[in-house]
Write a protein that binds this DNA or RNA. Structure first.
Lengths: 127, 127
DNA sequence: CGGTATCCAGTTCGATACTG
DNA sequence: CAGTATCGAACTGGATACCG
């Protein structure tokens, strides 16, 4: 199975979204998953995300949000109030992904310690 | 929902595998998914992977394989023949992940062009 | 065949400070 | 509240060459 389909006509826009590996590079990036899961259940605000996605810096949150918005996975809504209020909502496309992301995090959760242990073993074998 | 469970005792080994975001950082890295999908259906050899995972360099293939082996997702078997033969096999833990990874790649496949289009729109709006 | 070694450009990311 | 700006350290990843 090829992840980057080459059996497509040359004229399409494959050059822009070479695809699966590229797309997953964004969607699967360290912070994207957390943000997408968070945003899947209704709109979230910037500060909510900052608290919910533990360990993320303000800078990375901003950058990741911009990328997700650019990819059409989040919509950004600004309410011109004082103080300003900005909400991020998952698009339909992103919500389709939700179930898979939950499976992914659940898998990671279940095997967290097994992975940490495997690393210990490996590192001891290759001091 | 917190992706990085903080409601665990302080004494556990969370420090090592802070977890979901860390684990996903590896599993979801650009090349890991392709390699894992490839290895899920029986053993694969180094050169097979080099051909199957399009665009990967020899160096990155080696590095990614080492990481996956370290994480306990792949086992590496060396046959002391001439020329040497090395096989990589997905562990049970990795095979559990297979279905999810297929969903993920399938989603990426379906929305590839929509994402590319969203980027175009976004970029035009923010020249 | 299945790697390793080296170099180096580019990218990522945290820390910190500032703003409408 | 929701960002932006800037800097430097660290990591990533490609190219190339060599090896048992």
């Amino acid at each position: 199975m090829s992840l980057c389909n080459s059996d497509v006509t040359v004229q399409d826009e494959r050059a822009r979204a070479c695809t699966v590996s590229e797309v997953l590079g964004r969607v699967g990036s360290k912070w994207s998953i957390g943000i997408l899961v968070e945003a899947a259940n209704g709109p979230v605000r910037f500060t909510e995300l900052e608290r919910a996605v533990e360990g993320i810096s303000r800078r990375m949150l901003t950058l990741t949000l911009r990328n997700l918005e650019r990819d059409g996975l989040l919509t950004r809504t600004v309410y011109p109030t004082v103080p300003p209020k900005v909400e991020y909502t998952a698009t339909e496309m992103a919500r389709e992904l939700y179930g898979t992301l939950v499976q992914l995090t659940s898998w990671a959760e279940r095997h967290r310690t097994a992975i940490a242990h495997a690393q210990d073993v490996y590192d001891r074998a290759n001091q």
